[in-house]
C-alpha cells in the first residue's frame, strides 16, 4: 500500500483566540481529486495554506508527500504546485515571463524553463497572449495562467484554492476542462470551492467543512445516498397540496413558498399527487450535496 499524499490528523489552526480549523482529520491518496468544501470562513484557505507550508500548524499532525510540514517545507514546496485564492501573478511581467521567472525559484534552468513555459502556455490556450502584460488578461485567463504557473515544476500534488470563484460560467467550464485533462494524466489534486455542484461532479472524495469542523466526508455519491433519498421533489406550497401530503402521511419540509419531499420512487409519487390534486408547479431532480448541507445545517451554502 502506498503512503498517503496528504495525511491530516487532529489538525488545528488558531489565529489568536479564533479557532479557524478545529481538529480536522483526513487523508488523500495518490491520483485522487480531493475537495475541501464549505461556506466562506469555514477554514478552507487555512487548511490549504498549512498544506502548502506557508502557514504554520497550530497543533496536530500534517504530512504532505510523506513528509511532516514543519520539518521539510522546502522539500515539500519543491514538489507541489499552489494556486492561491488571491491573484498573485506578477503584474510587472509578461505571461511568458511570469512562468520563466517563477521557474527560477525551483532551480529550473533557462532552456528547460522556456520549453515548459511555452508548453504550458499552449496547454492553457494563452498562446496569443504570450508576450502581453498581465493587466490585459481577462479574469479567466489570469486564473489559467496561475494554474499554468503552478505546474512549472511538474508537481506531484496540485493544490487549488477556489480556482473558479469569481469567474463567469464559460471561464469556469474552461478551467474544469483543463483540470480534467490534468487529472487523467494521474495528478493528485486537492481543491477548495464553495460550488458544491462543481465539486460533486469533479471530486473523487471530499470533506464539507463548517466553522472549522468536518461536517461530512466521503465520495459525493456516498455522502448523498447515506443521508438522503435519491430524488428531491419541489412543489409550490399550497393548502390542497399540504392537505393531501398530511393525509397520506408523507413528510415534507417547508422552504418559503416551496415544499420539499425526498423519495426513492419519484415516478410513483408524481403519479399519485397529480391524480389527487393539481399542484401549480412541480419539479423533480436528483438530490445534491447542497441539499445535504441544507438539511444538515439549516443553512444554504451559497447565499
Amino acid at each position: 500500500m502506498t503512503s498517503p499524499v496528504i495525511l491530516a490528523d487532529g489538525l488545528v489552526k488558531r489565529y489568536g483566540n479564533l479557532v479557524a480549523v478545529d481538529s480536522v482529520s483526513f487523508r488523500v491518496d495518490e491520483g485522487e481529486v480531493f475537495g475541501i468544501l464549505g461556506p466562506n470562513g469555514a477554514g478552507k484557505t487555512s487548511i490549504i495554506r498549512m498544506i502548502s507550508c506557508t502557514s504554520p500548524v497550530t497543533s496536530g499532525r500534517l504530512e504532505v508527500l510523506g513528509l511532516p510540514v514543519d520539518g521539510f517545507p522546502r522539500d515539500i514546496k519543491a514538489r507541489i504546485g499552489v494556486v492561491s485564492q488571491e491573484n498573485n501573478l506578477d503584474p510587472d511581467l509578461s505571461v511568458y515571463e511570469n512562468l520563466t521567472v517563477f521557474a527560477r525559484f525551483f532551480e529550473i534552468n533557462r532552456a528547460e524553463a522556456s520549453r515548459r513555459a511555452d508548453e504550458l502556455i499552449g496547454f492553457f490556450g494563452l498562446s496569443e497572449k504570450r508576450d502581453t502584460v498581465i493587466e490585459s488578461l481577462s479574469g479567466g485567463m489570469k486564473r489559467r495562467l496561475t494554474i499554468a504557473r503552478a505546474l512549472i515544476n511538474r508537481p506531484s500534488l496540485v493544490i487549488l484554492d477556489e480556482p473558479t470563484t469569481g469567474l463567469d460560467p464559460q471561464a469556469r467550464a474552461l478551467i474544469w476542462e483543463r483540470l480534467r485533462a490534468l487529472r487523467s494524466d494521474g495528478a493528485t489534486i486537492i481543491l477548495s470551492t464553495h460550488y458544491l455542484e462543481e465539486a460533486e461532479r469533479f471530486c473523487d472524495r471530499l470533506v464539507i467543512l463548517d466553522r472549522g469542523k468536518i461536517l461530512l466526508t466521503g465520495s459525493p455519491g456516498e455522502i448523498i445516498s447515506e443521508r438522503m433519498s435519491r430524488a428531491l421533489i419541489e412543489i409550490m406550497n399550497e393548502p390542497d397540496v399540504r392537505a393531501w401530503l398530511d393525509q397520506e402521511g408523507i413528510s415534507y419540509e417547508v422552504y418559503g413558498d416551496l415544499l420539499q419531499i425526498t423519495t426513492d420512487t419519484p415516478e410513483d409519487f408524481v403519479r399519485r399527487i397529480v391524480a389527487a390534486c393539481t399542484p401549480q408547479r412541480l419539479l423533480v431532480r436528483n438530490s445534491t450535496l447542497e441539499d445535504v448541507f441544507l438539511r444538515q445545517t439549516g443553512r444554504r451554502l451559497i447565499r
Binding site: T54, K77, A78, S84, E86, N88, L89, F105, F106
Partner: peptide, 8 residues
C-alpha cells in the same frame, strides 16, 4: 506570497 509558495 507567490514566492514563499515555492522552495524560497
Amino acid at each position: 506570497d507567490a514566492l514563499i509558495a515555492t522552495p524560497v
